[in-house]
Amino acid sequence: MTLWIILIAIPMLFGFYAQMKIRSAYNKNVQIPSRGRISGREAAAAVMESAGIHDVEIVRVEGQLTDHYDPINRKLALSEHNYDGTSLAALGVAAHEAGHAIQHKVGYSMMKVRQTLAPATQIAAGASQFLIIAGIVLISSKLGGTFLMIGAGALALICLFQFVTLPVEFDATRRAKAQLVSLGIVGQDEMEGVHETLDAAALTYVAGFVASLGSLLHILLLLSGRRDD
């Protein structure tokens, strides 16, 4: 029971905390307009322009915090509030996604690794939960052990993907913060709101990795217990 609390319950609570943190930070800083009144779309365009990127389309997408960069189709997607908004949160998120576009242009190695892992990780994410549940239900049988082993392999791949994602996200945030100030989009005295938003977003990636790692260790302990029986 103690191991379950350490490996599953605590990471789960950490994940809830990270989600609350990003939503709180975003909802706070989306209400604070930047002095320059530059929109998120304009900020993303300026950051990419400064890096010599002219072939990435900036598009509006529905939802909140659905922002992402698509390296395959060369599109930078910003959620509605961040596309049109001039808030510190909108500018921080927009510049962060532009940071991913810069990573793509310069051939940032960890981004290449993440792109390579992405297709297999999508398959693993879809299959891992079924395999693990089936393995736990049938844990006393040989088939259950096989399911758990395959599920552990899928979780290991997910953990690797999330581990590689950490430096990719941290680097994009670093680039975003530097560009917002150097281009004069945000004043140094306004950066507190940008820091708060992007740092909270980074915490969600850490929480995701910790949760997956805890689940993997839990499954490995279950497999170890089967071998000891």
Rank of each mutant, 00 (worst) to 15 (best):
A98I: 00
F16K: 14
D70F: 02
I22T: 14
F16V: 14
V56N: 06
H81A: 15
N73C: 01
Y17S: 05
N27F: 07
E57D: 14
E42C: 00
F16Y: 13
Q19I: 03
W4V: 12
A118V: 10
S79I: 02
V113G: 10
A125F: 07
R23G: 08
A43W: 03
T121V: 15
G85Q: 05
L88Q: 08
Y108F: 15
G52R: 01
A18T: 10
I6A: 13
A94C: 04
L117E: 11
L78E: 07
R114T: 07
V56R: 00
V47F: 06
T86Q: 10
E42N: 09
H54Q: 10
R60I: 04
Y17L: 11
M48G: 07
E57Q: 15
Y83Q: 07
M48Q: 01
A44F: 06
E49M: 03
G40C: 01
A98F: 01
I53N: 07
H68P: 02
A127N: 07
V106P: 01
I10W: 08
H100N: 06
G107C: 03
N29I: 04
Q19G: 15
K112R: 15
I38Q: 05
P33F: 03
I8D: 06
I5E: 10
S109A: 15
T116S: 12
I53E: 10
I5G: 00
N27T: 10
D67W: 04
I22W: 06
P119C: 11
K105W: 05
N73K: 07
G85D: 08
T2M: 11
V59C: 03
Q64F: 09
P33W: 03
L13C: 07
A46N: 08
Q19M: 13
E80A: 13
P11L: 05
I10A: 15
I22V: 15
K28R: 15
A124E: 08
M20K: 13
L88D: 11
Q122A: 14
I22L: 13
V106C: 06
D67T: 05
T121P: 10
Y108A: 05
T116P: 00
M20W: 14
L76S: 09
W4H: 10
A94P: 02
I123H: 05
S39F: 01
L3K: 11
Y83C: 05
M48S: 01
M12N: 11
S79D: 15
A118D: 12
R114C: 12
S50F: 05
I123K: 12
L88G: 10
K75M: 12
H100P: 02
A125V: 12
R114E: 13
L117A: 12
S79C: 11
S50E: 14
A127H: 02
I32A: 12
A44E: 11
